[in-house]
Amino acid sequence: MKFKAFLTLDGVALLDKRFLPSLDKIGRTCHLYLTRTEDPATARHPHKPPQRRRRPIHPPNSERLPLSATPHLQQLRRPHRPSSSTPPSSTRVQQRRSGAGSVRSGETAAIQIKLVKKLTRGVHQPGARTDVRDEGAEVCGWFRMCPSRSHCRGRRWGSMGSWMLLRTCRSFILSLSLSRSTLQRGIFIRSINYFLPTLVQVPDLAQLQNLVDRLKNVGDLLTVAITQYGDLHLQVSTSLITVGSEFRRLKVLGVHADAPAGDQNLSAPTRTDMAIQRGQALSVLIRFKKLLWSKAFTRDKLLHKLPYGLFEHLGAFAFGFSSIRIYWDDHASPF
C-alpha cells in the first residue's frame, strides 16, 4: 500500500460541504498529489483533504506520487454522509475490525482513503484505484460501488463474521503515476508550486462584490493577491490609472504566517510584492468577465448552501479559489 489516510469528521464535513460542491462545478478531472508532507494538494483542484490523522505513504523513488482521476464527485460525496450519523459504538467496531493502530482511542473513524490495486472487469492487468471508505455503523452489511457503473449495479450485501458492518466504498480508477515530463510541461507542477494553501475571510462579502463591480469600470484585468498573514489585495491597473483595495489582518485558515514587523506603513502594492518575494503570497491576474462567473458561483453555490462552520463568509475563499482555478485551467492561453 502506498497511501492511506483518514479524515476526521471535521475534515469530512469540510470536504462534503465546501470543497466537493465547489469542485463539482469546476471540472471533472481531479489531479491528486500525494506527498509525505503535511500539505499535500491536488493540482487541478488545489485542496488537500484536511485534518488527516495518519497517513503512511511509501512512494518508491520520490516523496511525491502524482496521479489523476475522473471521479463523479457526487458519488464521491455519497459515502461521506453516513459518518455524521455514526453511533458511538462505531469506535468499538472500528477498533475491533482494524486493530488499535488504525484509529486512536476516543476518536471516531470517518473516511478512509486508500490507494489500492484492483482488477477491473475485462482487464487483465490490475490498475490503480483509490478507495474512499466509510466504515462506521454497526448494522447489516457492506456494499461496494464503482463509479463507472450505475448506482444499483455493483451493490451487494454480505456479512463480515459475527460483526455486521455497513461499509460504503467508492473505487475510483486512477491513472498511472504521471511521468516527470508530464509534470514539467503541464499545469501540474506550476499549480503545485504556486498554490498557496491559505484561505482568508472577508468580513463583508457584499461590500467586496460591490467593490469589484466598481473596479470593473476602471479596467479589464483584476489582480488578486492573498498573503499568509491575512492580507487580501485587489488591484486594477492600466496605463492611466491604478486602483486597488487592501484588506489587512483578515482571519486566516490554512497556512499562516506572522506579518513582518516594520511594513505596516508601506503601500499595499509594496507589501504584496514583498510578501510574494518571501513566498508568503500568491497573486493571480483575472479577466473581469471570468470573474463574473465565479461570483455567480460564489453566491449561488457557496454562500447559500454552506452557511456553517469555521467561517461564516466564504466569499474570499471561493472568490480567490475560483479565480485561481480559472487562471490555471486555461494554461495554454490564460486569457
Binding site: T242, V243, A268
Partner: peptide, 11 residues
C-alpha cells in the same frame, strides 16, 4: 480604517 483601504493613482 487601518485594516481596509482603497487607493488610487491617476496619471
Amino acid at each position: 480604517s487601518p485594516d481596509a483601504c482603497i487607493y488610487a493613482e491617476i496619471r
